[in-house]
Amino acid sequence: MDGAGQKRRPLMVMASSSSTLLAARVGANPLAELTHRVKSLEAGMRMRAWLAKQPTHVEAAVATALGAVQGGALGGLMGTLAPDGGSALPMPQPPPGLDPKAMASFKQAQALAGGPLVQARNFAVMTGTNAGIACVMKRIRGVEDVQGSMAAAFGSGALFSLVSGMGTPNPAVNAITTGIAFAVFQGGFFMIGQKFSQPKGEDKDTYYSRGRSMLQKLGLQNYEKNFKKGLLTDSTLPLLTDSALRDVKIPPGPRLLILDHIQRDPELTRAS
């Protein structure tokens, strides 16, 4: 009996400890997850607000670095999942006397069939360049539009062509044609996405253009509908107060960012 009791005791302890851990995990996870999400959101808002106050080259450098990191991770993952992406064997050299069209096809296959490091480099260059140019264009033009998107796509496509070595024997010509192709595709996708995301009749709404641009700079574009519900048009921006923003149900953090931005921007402090 004693031996049986001694054998059962560890099982009871293990069951008790595992049930306690499970109960603690189930009880703590929702609160911990919510706290983590709130902190992440606040950190992202503070980061966007800090970048909006920095010079253009600082924001562009940060945007380029973040875009390159994301693109590098995506490219490395794609290179790993590709059928021959993990191969350590180098690509064979093209045979001499190959005609230009066949050479272009070979170089394109060579660029797209690289291993994880090659794909990570190519995608890092492409996405980093796109993010940096888009940031600069947004600062210069004051709005994120199709022209800025196409300019960013052209630069990323041209640099991707040069770095990857794909295309015709003339790198400059291929960089231009690749950049144009990237610009056309991204411009088309931008216009399609804008058309589907914009409510009907929104394209003729010009009373909230400055407010919309301000919210986009601060990363608070989700509160544009609050401005419209409260009829906070561009002409009311210099008159905004904390109570007015509270009345349209904008939280305290975004309210502080909006009021601080209006005070610092001389264009917004003037009456329209």
Rank of each mutant, 00 (worst) to 15 (best):
A4T: 06
Q6F: 04
V13I: 11
S18T: 10
S19Y: 07
S19H: 03
A24F: 05
G27F: 06
N29W: 13
S40Q: 14
M45H: 11
R46Y: 00
M47H: 15
A61M: 09
A61N: 08
A63Y: 10
A63T: 04
A65H: 00
L66V: 09
Q70M: 06
L74S: 11
G75Q: 05
G76E: 00
M78C: 03
T80I: 09
L81D: 00
P83K: 08
A88H: 12
P94D: 00
P96E: 01
G97Y: 02
M103H: 12
A104T: 08
K107T: 15
L117C: 06
V118D: 10
V118F: 08
R121Y: 11
N122M: 10
N122C: 06
M126I: 15
T127W: 08
A134P: 01
S149K: 04
M150L: 02
F154C: 08
L159S: 12
F160S: 07
F160M: 14
F160G: 07
P171T: 05
N174G: 07
T178K: 06
A181S: 14
F185M: 14
F185H: 14
G187I: 06
M191A: 15
Q194W: 02
S197E: 03
D205C: 00
R210V: 01
S213G: 00
K217H: 12
Q221I: 11
Y223E: 01
K229D: 13
K229W: 01
G230P: 07
D234P: 03
P238C: 02
T241C: 03
K249T: 11
I262G: 08
R264E: 03
D265P: 09
A271E: 12
A271M: 10
